[in-house]
Design a protein around this nucleic acid. Structure first.
Length: 272
DNA sequence: AGGGCTACCTGTACGC
DNA sequence: TGCGTACAGGTAGCCC
């Protein structure tokens, strides 16, 4: 599920609901994730509180009132739920117990993880240190894009590369290239200036809009890909193989191809 | 160094 | 109904 807008939606939800609340205890229900959950976490964070929640690409960073920070990645199926009466569910991994509620991290496929760091070390961790600029930041602009055109890959794979730009995943890359009318297989060095500008503009527009939609759809205390309808309802091309293109309206123009093992969708007529 | 491929894991949908 | 297979929005780590 979670690409930048989804992770940002989770961040906003958690910021509203668990900041400055004292953690009485932490229980590891199942330490088996992409990386084993450290049993230092309950010890180091007991009686502290989250003071800040940041997002970098698809990662969430929780800063605590002591020296520590947690780095979360949701993988494909990770989600949080906040509840006042904890009933254990399949694939629950870690439970943060506040005085009146509990925050649970659940991850079916175990591609997600949580790691503990000393605060000052988190941005130099191997996960964070090489990430490319945030796509919504000023750093992701024409000049930056242009500097990276010497790469030997296609535009879909470039946008998917977290070290080029952080936070875009398989769905948003298809959507961005559809919006900017660029064919996903185009080699990076073949791109014209005006196409680069369109891609940057489309990326920022689509991400902003999706974050806005995410914010309007939080209606309960579960933040998961099933519960948040947000962008799913607004897809223009992803998952629409064999359907009419929503721009040029011609029938059966949306095609699904495989790029580096992932599905890409595009219109054969209006993406050049 | 950079890019491509595979492994990791569980659930679901679909064809037979 | 059951079984086998393909596929799913993630990254790390290996290989070239």
């Amino acid at each position: 599920m979670p690409e930048l807008p989804e992770v940002e939606t989770v961040r906003i939800f958690l910021k509203k609901n668990v900041i400055q609340k004292k953690i009485l205890s932490i229980k590891i229900e199942d330490s088996n994730l992409r990386f084993q959950i450290s049993n230092e976490i309950p010890i180091k964070l007991r009686n502290s509180m989250i003071t800040k929640i940041l997002r970098r690409g698809k990662y969430l960073i929780f800063l605590y009132s002591n020296d520590y920070a947690l780095l979360f990645h949701l993988g494909m199926t990770g989600y949080f739920r906040l509840t006042d009466s904890y009933k254990k569910k399949k694939h629950d991994h870690i439970v943060f117990i506040f005085s009146e509620e509990k925050l649970i991290f659940n991850d079916i496929r175990k591609f997600g993880f949580v790691k503990i760091y000393k605060k000052q070390r988190i941005f130099t961790s191997k996960h964070i240190k090489n990430l490319g600029p945030e796509p919504l930041s000023k750093a992701f602009d024409f000049e930056y894009f242009h500097k990276n055109l010497n790469r030997k890959t296609n535009i879909k794979n470039l946008l998917m590369n977290q070290n080029f730009v952080s936070g875009l995943g398989n769905i948003y890359c298809s959507e961005i290239l559809f919006d900017s009318q660029v064919k996903p297989t185009r080699s990076v060095k073949s791109l014209k200036d005006k196409e680069l500008k369109r891609i940057i503009g489309s990326a920022k527009k689509i991400l902003k809009n999706s974050i806005k939609l995410g914010g309007t759809t939080i209606k309960n205390f579960i933040v998961s890909y099933e519960e948040i309808g947000y962008f799913k309802n607004n897809l223009m091309v992803y998952g629409r193989e064999g359907c009419n293109c929503m721009r040029c309206k011609k029938s059966i123009l949306v095609k699904k191809i495989n790029q580096s093992g992932r599905s890409t969708f595009f219109c054969t007529e209006c993406q050049l």
